[in-house]
């Protein structure tokens, strides 16, 4: 006679996934199936940044660390008002609203050529 599985409230069959589980690196050479779940991502590195199209304005925020690629019109909206001190500050010499976190802070601005 087959033994009937017990309907219990433990969850032993669930794979352990703890927050401490290391994330499998995508470009480590270890066998992450590029046609599996990874195929959903076009990003392949640790940069977490959107690709910037030619002519776009990339704003790097000193507060949140996020890089935001904007069209010139979008950049203008976030840059009003703004302050630019290229001769007084070495890094992040523009003060404006960060599109990512919304704070007014010092940022780097580059134009994608």
């Amino acid at each position: 006679m087959t033994k009937r599985p017990r309907a219990g409230t433990d969850f032993d069959r669930l794979r352990p996934r703890t927050p401490q589980t290391p994330v499998e690196p995508i470009s480590s050479g270890t066998p992450a199936d590029q046609q599996g779940k990874r195929a959903l991502f076009s990003a392949t590195g640790d940069e977490a940044t959107p690709p910037a199209a030619t002519g776009s304005v990339v704003v790097s925020c000193g507060d949140c660390g996020e890089r935001s690629a904007l069209t010139p019109a979008q950049a203008l909206r976030y840059a009003v008002p703004s302050l630019h001190l290229p001769f007084l500050k070495r890094d992040r010499w523009s003060w404006m609203q960060c599109p990512a976190c919304g704070r007014r802070t010092w940022v780097d601005i580059t134009i994608q050529l």
């Binding site: 994330v23 977490a48 996020e66």
Partner: peptide, 15 residues
């Protein structure tokens, strides 16, 4: 879902 969240945090949205 949490596996995917960790992938997203590393690849496209660390916030």
């Amino acid at each position: 879902l949490l596996d995917t969240v960790r992938d997203v945090q590393r690849l496209t949205n660390k916030r």
